[in-house]
């Protein structure tokens, strides 16, 4: 039997993804206004975050609708061993889907504290990244926190 031969390689892809107008304006709202905007879309209601079209019937997205930075958790996944250079933090955290007040779809994000109190149905609110750290990214919302 031949001794196995292996080679370790790390591949890095530095992508710059164009955002287009709708995603770009949504992200500008996070960065410049600290406000969360959805788009009214046929068949889906108020979609947050918006993509500019209906994912169900393909029609163009309609008017902008601001939603609240508060909402209800619809799914929770607690991560106890974060993966470096993939996950957003090194300490245990939770991925959540949050249906923001005024929205009809849920936003995927993270909760960092009060993990033991977090469950489907828990109310949470957005925590903004400091002004200097907001770059026009979904992570301009630093995380969500449990509302007592």
């Amino acid at each position: 039997m031949t001794e196995p031969l292996e080679q370790r390689v790390v591949t890095e892809f530095p992508y710059k993804h164009s955002t287009g107008e709708v995603i770009g304006r949504f992200l500008a709202g996070l960065k410049d206004q600290k406000r969360i905007w959805g788009q009214r879309v046929a068949g889906q209601g108020v979609v947050v975050p918006p993509v500019g079209y209906s994912e169900t019937d393909g029609s163009a997205g309609g008017e902008w609708v601001e939603v609240k930075p508060t909402g209800v958790v619809t799914a929770v996944a607690r991560v106890y061993r974060p993966i470096a250079q993939l996950h957003p933090c090194a300490e245990p955290f939770a991925f959540v889907l949050v249906k923001l007040d005024g929205a009809d779809t849920a936003l995927a994000h993270v909760v960092r504290d009060d993990l033991e109190r977090l469950r489907v149905g828990t109310r949470v609110e957005a925590v903004w990244a400091p002004d200097a750290d907001r770059t026009g990214s979904i992570r301009d919302i630093a995380c969500f926190r449990v509302i007592t």
Binding site: H17, I83, H87, L107, A108, I138, R139
Partner: peptide, 12 residues
């Protein structure tokens, strides 16, 4: 996942 909203928060 889409690179703007879902991949960007590190979902696996």
């Amino acid at each position: 996942l889409d690179p703007y909203y879902q991949a960007a928060i590190g979902l696996d």
